[in-house]
Amino acid sequence: MPKISQKAIHKFLRHDKNFPHVWCPGCSNGIVLGATIRAIAELGYKKDNIVMVSGIGCSSRMPVYVDFNTLHSLHGRAIAYATGIKIVKPEMKVIVITGDGDATAIGGNHFIHGARRNIDMTVILINNNIYGMTGGQYSPTTPYGDRTTTTPYGNIDPVFDICNLALGAGATFVARTTAFHVIEAQSFIKQAFEHKGFSLVEIISACPVIYGRLNKKGDASAMMKSMKENVLPIKAFEKLSDKQKKGKQKRGIFVNKIRPEFIEEYDKLIKSLQDEKGRK
């Protein structure tokens, strides 16, 4: 992994926006932003050929700070907007930055149908287990028994496995990593950019100020250390017994396959119909 210096990252930031950014101390969103920019710098994409789309949420503040073509859209509808952009400008590299509540609760339909139709875009899903920006309500990925402002006596709902959801819906690149494993995150994001089709990178992140404080998880470094212990590579996870698997998650690339892509199929359809008309 080549080292991309901090100076290179500053070239992609909008310094006329208010820095330091809006996220709380220790929030992993900044780490994911750094990994994303490093992956883009490594691939050598031009700023003008990238569109970054987001919905609403902590993570969705990200497009404000980067110097690409950016769109800050409605809550949960980021993938719908990204589909429109991709159809009009297929040469653009579309990146969707979204959170767990944004993509799987409010925008759940857009998410599964985006994966099913295999639209060429990269979804970077930052999973912090809570709705941070709106005040700490429970999200579909809040673990069982955890406290949030809307579940003060513990959450009784089982969690969404986002990678399995995307796999079931038919996504062609699905990977999971954590904010602690930054080098892996950078490499997965890079592979997702290069992949043709719907690619999802789920990044488990820490929310030390709202989720961590309510559940007594410690500060940002303690939460990141627990990620290191509880999120294991696929092979190491499979070796564990059922009892040991409790509370642990696997990380790695779950699928990387090629399937007919939506924009290509659409272009083919247009071309075949135009040819038919021309013959008549």
Partner: peptide
């Protein structure tokens, strides 16, 4: 090693 670089959420440190 640039670990502080990569893990800093605020782009506030560089050990390059």
């Amino acid at each position: 090693c640039e670990m502080c670089d990569r893990l800093c959420p605020d782009f506030a440190i560089t050990g390059a």
